[in-house]
């Protein structure tokens, strides 16, 4: 019975935050950006087709990789993040597999491969966008690896991560980005989105 009290305090904090955000609307900070070094756990997750995926291998790729945390029945945050993914895929043109888009569920209780598949279909996801579920413990470890542990799916925060294969570093983006912001960040990571052409990291120097 202490939980309602905790929740009341959390909601109060949330409400205060919202108030603060709205009050500061004159000069909104659209999102927070940082560059991080993360170590991925060697866990086995399951994709929308029910296939086992060795997570570390999937991410430590020669391709650009983008990661977000969503779940099948989430309200506001996931639609926005997923609309961003779908938008990026549209900009990529025909060869959508040149960028590896990875969504990881934070609700492995409910999100079976069938739910993941249905979710991707709703956003008209094309090849190159995988949605992963798996053991709760493994997903906890993945969240921890990204310094993005959500104790509960209702503590969800909008986070997007972009990995550059150049140095294996991650750009961490915290906030609900506009389509332009997302594409800008993607380009800043050294990638191009020219439709139809292969996407490579444009290595400076």
């Amino acid at each position: 019975m202490i939980i309602p009290l905790i929740r009341a305090l959390v909601l109060l904090a949330v409400a205060t935050l919202v108030f603060a955000v709205v009050a500061a609307a004159a000069e909104p900070e659209r999102y927070k950006r940082s560059v991080e070094q993360y170590t991925m756990p060697d866990v086995v997750l399951i994709n929308q087709d029910g296939e086992k995926v060795r997570f570390k291998k999937l991410l430590e790729s020669e391709q650009p990789v983008v990661v977000d945390f969503i779940y099948g029945t989430c309200t506001t945050i996931c639609p926005i993040l997923s609309a961003g993914y779908a938008n990026l895929q549209r900009k990529l043109g025909t060869d959508t597999t040149k960028v590896r888009l990875v969504s990881i569920t934070i609700d492995p209780e409910y999100d079976t491969p069938a739910i993941l598949k249905e979710y991707l279909a709703r956003y008209q996801a094309k090849p190159g966008w995988d949605f992963l579920t798996g053991s709760r413990r493994d997903i906890d470890r993945v969240m921890n690896a990204f310094d993005a542990y959500f104790r509960d799916k209702m503590d969800h925060k909008p986070l997007t991560f972009i990995r550059s294969p150049k140095d294996g570093k991650w750009i961490r983006l915290y906030g609900l980005l506009s389509g332009i912001d997302f594409l800008d960040e993607y380009k800043k990571a050294g990638f191009t989105v020219t439709p139809g052409l292969s996407t490579k990291a444009a290595v400076p120097n």
Binding site: L17, T76, P79, A86, R122, H156
Partner: peptide, 21 residues
């Protein structure tokens, strides 16, 4: 993909998720 109900829910009385009200 998503529409009014996704965030305002079926009752129209809104939702709270993380920091988003």
């Amino acid at each position: 993909a998503f529409t009014c109900v996704s965030c305002h829910l079926r009752s129209g009385l809104g939702s709270v998720e993380g920091e988003v009200v």
